[in-house]
């Protein structure tokens, strides 16, 4: 049982590490702000979840488990919202958005820019 718990927590932690490393790679290798947000935000929710799950399994069930769950909840609430705001700012201030990437609906981008003025 003990070795199973260790193996599970090690697997979860390693998977979390892999996810976080790929997020770091994406943040530094992607060229545009929106792609970087994609790498950073989407991946760090999963990475933090798996890392903390690994810690929970390693720790065993105790008071700290609830605290870690609270940490996961807090980060899942805040991190996507922060990325959403950064993405919105990028759409608002970047005038060459259509040159950097494919814009599905140019009217929406224009609307966003005008509503901010």
């Amino acid at each position: 049982m003990e070795w199973f718990r260790f193996a599970l927590s090690a697997a979860l932690t390693l998977f979390g590490l892999f996810v976080l490393v790929s997020a770091v790679l994406g943040v530094f290798r992607f060229r545009y702000a929106l792609s970087r947000i994609h790498a950073a935000a989407l991946v760090d929710t999963l990475g933090i979840l798996t890392m903390l799950c690994g810690l929970m399994v390693a720790q065993g069930f105790s008071d700290a488990t609830w605290k870690m769950l609270a940490v996961v909840g807090f980060l899942w609430l805040t991190s996507p919202v922060a990325s959403h705001l950064i993405g919105r700012l990028e759409v608002t201030v970047n005038d060459d958005l259509a040159e950097d990437m494919a814009v599905a609906d140019p009217a929406l981008v224009r609307e966003e820019k005008e509503s901010e003025d």
Binding site: V81, H84, L85
Partner: peptide
Amino acid sequence: EPHSDIIL
């Protein structure tokens, strides 16, 4: 004052 965001 930037207008506020509904998600935020």
